[in-house]
Design a binder for these strands. Structure first.
Length: 611
DNA sequence: GCCGTTTTCGGCCCGACTGTTTTCAGTCG
């Protein structure tokens, strides 16, 4: 087996596709071919799972923007670690061009011009060589470049060296927290009416590149809106954490915020705020499809509203507000979707799959909401049962108080199982018995269920004497060690653990840690089928670095009628606030309230767990 | 190169900003 293909990350594949697009651009290929490769690169770059895993499941062609040609070449790339086709295309352009394209504000054309004019042909030193050339004033002398461009290039190099790349993504909750901080800052400014996130952050994608923020300016003094917009931009530029300003305009600004996160701000008046939200929330594929859908009806969408084109006959009920520009404006996104004859589509599912189709048929489901959640079933306490892993910070009593604040009806206490090495079976049973008694003694408004989170050992056995199962209401099982098994053995391992009595939840099923560990692959069809049949819920874990099960697998699991438990895996009471992120994963996976077991009332939940 | 219940051929999303420009090209989101 070759090993090199194993490490092909989405980022690397996106970069290959982007490079191909660049070659086609530089060699004057059909412009739609260029767009196709660029779109594919964008889509792959934003996937929430490894493309290679999707390929392994034979689902490459389900991804919007990947068709016959790109798909079959990716197939070759995964199978053999290289693609002759891609390689052949890339050979047409010096590889240094692709490296320069990583600099902000340098695209294919500028990169190519620089490489040609300055003979930058050494991939190892190309950035340094360009820097030297700029410092020696050689760039400013080039045609279509000037003093400013030269200075910008030096800035770009500095930024590049600090960031190492244009596209390092962070787990959603970190980006969300930053957005909240900025939003708190912005709302202090008089004239700021509403604030929203945009882009992947608004769609609650598990990993975020840039933070995009929209501000609606108050419009009661219409003649002053323009200057007010500019004032808000200026105020934003004084946000304390800004370390550099990328660019600014009258109604937008891009900055870098410590520690190296790009933040874009857009300011818009009330009348077209909804259109702007829609436009910049994306995803790119959703917008392309929505605009294509609009064109078929004679409507052109842009960030200010919808324009009527050609001789399109509008329903007589609709009056054109501004006959000259033929522009329809929308304060709310919902109005815009409805105007197009579509049901409102929540941001989380705007991914360009089949949502527009379903919206047309009024078949967009009611996605689960945070207020539907009635309990948290994966919580670690400070109770000392000599656990195999870490404790939580809070006592059972404190956890129940926090749960009451969150208006929950019940919680599951799921400490890690007692360590099995260095203790006899009897000692373990005594600990479990005592814990059982201690918990049963607790009297509180919020009810509790006695659980445990148990390691699935490499051979599929549970890290707990079977007799100990008498002292719990339910079990959560999860893999915490030996991650590098092949898919077949890993699947067998998990299935065997799921077969124990009282196992009710499979926790953080892929084991991924965003940004640091890829997670293992299971034969999902088998797992989903088994869980569905045996009434075992699959966890959507809300921890910032997990967000596991990934959203695309959630949607797949739904087809097997799998139920989910959205849990926080809290190790401290403050973590219990993270439920929101798990709910957003569920929403991205198209879950309704009925798909989530911890939306059940206490009595229904009791029935479910005893089934 | 992608896509499809008006199409397997013939279409293909839209605008802002910037710098170098005398009317536009390149980059970005």
């Amino acid at each position: 087996m070759r090993q090199e293909q194993k490490n092909l990350s989405n980022k690397e594949i996106a970069s290959i596709l982007r490079n191909i697009a660049a070659v086609y651009l530089l060699t004057n290929a059909n412009r739609f071919k260029i767009i196709a490769y660029d779109n594919a690169a964008d889509t792959v770059g934003q996937l929430t799972r490894e493309l290679k895993d999707i390929w392994q499941e034979d689902k490459l062609f389900n991804i919007p923007g990947i068709g016959k040609t790109i798909g079959s070449n990716l197939d070759e790339l995964f199978k053999t670690g290289k693609s002759e086709h891609f390689k052949g295309i890339m050979k047409k352009i010096p590889s240094t061009v692709f490296i320069l394209m990583n600099l902000p504000t340098i695209g294919p054309k500028k990169a190519y011009k620089l490489v040609q004019a300055l003979k930058l042909l050494n991939p190892k030193t190309v950035i340094k060589d360009l820097q030297k050339a700029a410092e020696q004033n050689h760039v400013a002398k080039l045609e279509t470049f000037g003093e400013k461009s030269q200075k910008d290039i030096l800035e770009a190099i500095k930024l590049y060296e600090k960031r190492s790349s244009k596209s390092d993504r962070m787990p959603l909750p970190y980006a969300y927290a930053l957005a909240r901080e900025i939003s708190n800052y912005l709302e202090k400014f008089p004239g700021v009416n509403r604030i929203h996130t945009l882009g992947s952050l608004r769609r609650m994608v598990s990993t975020i590149g840039d933070v995009d923020i929209a501000v609606q300016v108050e419009s009661h003094k219409v003649h002053k809106v323009k200057s007010l917009e500019k004032e808000i931009v200026n105020y934003f530029l004084k946000f304390p954490k800004i370390i550099s300003v990328v660019n600014t305009g009258d109604k937008k600004a891009s900055v870098i915020v410590s520690p190296n996160i790009r933040v874009d701000l857009r300011v818009q008046g009330e009348k077209s705020y909804g259109a702007m939200l829609q436009y910049f929330t994306g995803s790119k594929m959703h917008n392309i499809r929505l605009r294509e859908y609009g064109i078929k009806k004679g409507l052109s969408l842009n960030e200010y509203g919808i324009k009527s084109i050609s001789n399109f006959q509008l329903p007589t009920s609709i009056e054109i507000p501004n006959p000259k520009s033929k522009l329809f404006e929308f304060k709310e996104e919902k109005e815009l979707y409805n105007f197009l004859g579509l049901q409102y589509i929540p941001p989380e599912i705007r991914e360009g799959t089949n949502e527009i189709d379903l919206a047309e048929k009024n078949k967009i489901p009611n996605l689960v909401e945070i207020k539907d959640i009635k309990g948290d079933l994966h919580i670690h306490s400070s109770y000392d049962l000599k656990p195999s892993h870490d404790f939580g910070e809070n006592s059972y009593q404190e956890i129940l108080e926090k749960a009451e604040q969150l208006k929950y009806e019940y919680v599951g206490f799921t400490d890690h199982n007692t360590k099995i090495s260095g203790q006899t079976e009897k000692e373990i049973l005594d600990i479990m018995k005592l814990r059982y008694k201690d918990i049963r003694k607790i009297n509180s408004k919020v009810k509790n269920f006695i659980g445990l989170e148990i390691d699935i050992m490499p051979h599929g056995k549970l890290a707990l004497p079977e007799k100990a199962i008498d002292y719990v209401d339910f079990l959560i099982v999860s893999v915490h060690s030996v991650f590098n098994m092949d898919m077949k053995s890993m699947t067998q391992r998990v299935l065997s653990a799921l077969s124990y009595p009282k196992v009710k939840i499979l926790a953080h099923p892929t084991g991924r840690l965003l940004g640091s560990r890829e997670g293992f692959e299971l034969d999902w069809a088998k797992i989903f089928e088994f869980c569905s049949k045996k009434n075992i819920a699959i966890e959507i874990n809300s921890l910032p670095k997990r967000l596991d099960l990934p959203d695309s697998l959630v949607r797949e699991a739904l087809q097997y009628k799998v139920k989910f438990a959205i849990n926080t895996d809290a190790h401290a009471n403050s973590h219990m606030d993270g439920m929101f992120y798990g709910v957003s994963v569920a929403r991205r996976g198209w879950c309704t309230k009925n798909d989530i077991i911890n939306t059940l009332s206490i009595s229904d939940f009791r029935k479910w767990i005893n089934r």
